[in-house]
């Protein structure tokens, strides 16, 4: 009895020490406290309740790009409310205030391991990363720039799909961005898509699944129809791990599953191999 409580105290002290030396996070859902290392090891999911610590577009860009190499394009492009959809402006203003972003994607040019690339990163905090006219426009412009400069294109997706508040204008962004991927293909340029948590609907069913190499971030939920809707409409119980990255890999939908912390090194290797004759020079 005495011994046990002694061990407990020492364990708590050790834990205390662990938290003192590292940045810690508290899960907003279940309040479990974890260190930055644990969070990384668990791919940004809470080990206890599977809450996902959302990653911002800028975090992703800083994670993979060489320091100070990223130059943003078309930051000024903003959505309008073309259908006069109720509450749309209010939601957009809120999203802008909360994220500091103008839209649900950041696009631009940067370098990764010395290789110049065109890069886009979606941000699920901005209206669930939904794709409306502005997001579609930024993606198509980025891809057209990649063609103009003959650069590889890399897209990080994280989205609930098309933005319903813009109606058919949003749905048509699927056609628009897919057509732009068609041009990338014709130009023979490398296009890498990284599916991050969560990516569903019209983004999965357009530019995000059309890449030469498709990488899913470990643990990410990726699919066409969201799991809740599948359960509601079909009444089926979903199998464990359904629509998660590892499941997609097993079903042949992605080339690789990669933890976030190792994404940059994988991208460098892929870019390196695609330099062809210049392989290994950089």
């Amino acid at each position: 009895m005495f011994k046990k409580s002694y061990i407990d105290i020492s364990g708590a002290k050790k834990k205390q020490a662990k938290f003192e030396n590292e940045v810690t996070f508290s899960c907003p859902k279940c309040l479990t406290r974890i260190t930055a290392t644990e969070k990384m090891q668990n791919n940004d999911f809470c080990p206890k309740c599977s809450y996902y610590y959302v990653t911002s577009a800028w975090d992703r860009i800083h994670d993979v790009c060489d320091e100070n190499s990223f130059e943003e394009w078309n930051a000024h492009i903003k959505s309008l409310n073309p259908l006069n959809f109720p509450n749309y402006e209010k939601k957009m203003i809120k999203a802008r205030e909360e994220t500091g972003l103008t839209e649900a994607i950041v696009t631009g040019r940067g370098s990764i391991g010395g290789y110049d690339v065109v890069l886009g990163a979606m941000d699920s905090r901005f209206m669930m990363g939904s794709m409306g006219s502005a997001v579609g426009e930024k993606i198509s412009r980025a891809m057209e720039k990649a063609i103009q400069y003959s650069l590889p294109c890399i897209m990080f997706s994280s989205s609930g799909g098309a933005r319903m508040q813009e109606g058919m204008l949003s749905l048509m962004q699927m056609a628009k961005t897919s057509a732009s991927v068609g041009r990338l293909r014709e130009a023979g340029l490398l296009y890498i898509s990284i599916l991050t948590h969560p990516t569903t609907g019209g983004v999965t069913a357009s530019f995000a699944s059309l890449a030469d190499v498709i990488i899913a971030e470990s643990g990410a939920l990726v699919g066409f129809t969201g799991p809740r809707v599948i359960e509601q409409t079909t009444g089926h119980v979903l199998p464990p791990g359904f629509q998660r990255s590892e499941y997609l890999l097993k079903h042949g939908m992605v080339d690789l599953v990669q933890p976030r912390a190792e994404m940059r090194s994988l991208l460098i290797r892929l870019l390196n191999i695609h330099q062809g004759e210049n392989y290994g020079e950089k």
């Binding site: 897919s178 999965t204 066409f224 809707v229 599948i230 629509q243 079903h251």
Partner: peptide, 26 residues
């Protein structure tokens, strides 16, 4: 709409649709 079932997800509904969009565009 496209079928929202488990089987459709397993066989890549999103992938099948995006290839149609890209294929038709060119």
């Amino acid at each position: 709409g496209a079928d929202p079932g488990i089987g459709a997800e397993e066989r890549g509904q999103a992938w099948a649709i995006s290839e149609m969009l890209c294929g038709l565009s060119s």
